[in-house]
């Protein structure tokens, strides 16, 4: 554990202990994915109103950090935008733990284009030719469009830094496990940076979570094969599985949850919890009615 993390945990712990002494509260530690951190914080705040005896402490740091903390036994719930890897699972088992997966939401990855780009839909096959190493498509006429204001019609590929969960998921879906991204993509350090760069560059194409979409970019309709039926990225298409690049967002607990943790997980999957997911721009795991 890093000293800063240790200090933070110690602080959280001491605050928790002192508040327990006064109000006899239960504290649930929740840590992990930066994609989920905003939602997790919103849940924690709302749950305080539902059940004032339980406090949920939420920290980010990335999926890997959360899973490592779960294995080390310092958190009760780990947030993750990817599955626990075999290596991590083995490590957890060797320590007598049993990470159990709970899918709490879906995140649709949108393919962003500049608003001037006349392209409306694109297939996963075409995306592979655009982003994959040795791919054939390098200029916009390769996918049948002319982009006004784009010099030479060169595609400017916007991607993410190579250890982001979004990067790994997009690579897996479009290129499979045996192929890499081509060199020369602009690797941005956050989802928002991708959207900002695409918004200001007419030649650009990029990908990021649906929740980061703004009015200054256009989202492509995605089909699996060229000419096939395409689905627009939306909460509805991500939930019903018709959108091809939607990933589950998960929470892991050690064994089946019990006690207050069980109550919290059940509340997250209830209408109230799932409506919060919806309000943050992610897709709930089932149909919910929200006001």
């Amino acid at each position: 554990m890093k000293p800063a993390q240790f200090f933070l945990n110690a602080l959280v712990f001491s605050v928790a202990v002192s508040s327990m002494a006064v109000e006899a509260r239960t504290l649930i530690q929740n840590k992990g994915s930066d994609t989920l951190v905003n939602v997790a914080q919103a849940w924690a705040e709302e749950y305080r109103k539902v059940n004032p005896d339980v406090a949920v402490a939420v920290t980010g740091g990335g999926s890997g950090t959360g899973i490592a903390a779960l294995i080390n036994g310092t958190v009760d719930i780990a947030n993750a935008s990817r599955r626990v890897k075999q290596k991590e699972m083995d490590l957890a088992r060797s320590r007598g733990q049993d990470p159990v997966k709970h899918v709490v939401a879906y995140d649709a990855l949108s393919v962003f284009l500049h608003p001037d780009n006349p392209l409306d839909s694109i297939s996963l096959e075409e995306l592979a030719e655009i982003y994959g190493e040795g791919g054939e498509f390098t200029i916009w006429p390769d996918v049948g469009v002319e982009v006004p204001g784009c010099k030479d019609q060169t595609m400017i590929l916007v991607s993410r830094q190579n250890n982001s969960g979004t990067y790994a998921y997009f690579r897996k879906i479009t290129l499979g496990k045996r192929r890499d991204f081509r060199l020369g993509t602009r690797d941005m350090h956050g989802s928002k940076d991708v959207v900002d760069l695409v918004a200001s560059t007419s030649c650009a194409i990029g990908y990021s979570g649906l929740a980061y979409a703004t009015d200054h970019v256009k989202m492509a309709c995605i089909s699996k094969t060229k000419g096939g039926a395409c689905a627009n990225p939306s909460v509805a298409t991500a939930s019903d599985g018709s959108y091809p690049i939607a990933r589950p967002l998960m929470m892991y607990t050690d064994g089946e949850p019990a006690g207050e943790i069980k109550n919290y997980m059940e509340w997250i999957l209830s209408d109230a919890g799932q409506c919060i997911i919806l309000s943050k721009g992610y897709a709930p795991v089932r149909d919910v009615k929200c006001d």
Binding site: Q161, N163, L183, G184, R186, D187
Partner: peptide, 29 residues
């Protein structure tokens, strides 16, 4: 622009050694 690229003109995006460490170290096991 943080793009892995052997530049052939001053209008190419490139990536620096330092920037690579800064962007990747934080989330590396």
């Amino acid at each position: 622009g943080h793009a892995i690229n052997l530049p052939s003109s001053i209008f190419d995006s490139v990536r620096a050694l330092t920037a690579t460490i800064a962007a990747e170290l934080g989330e590396t096991a």
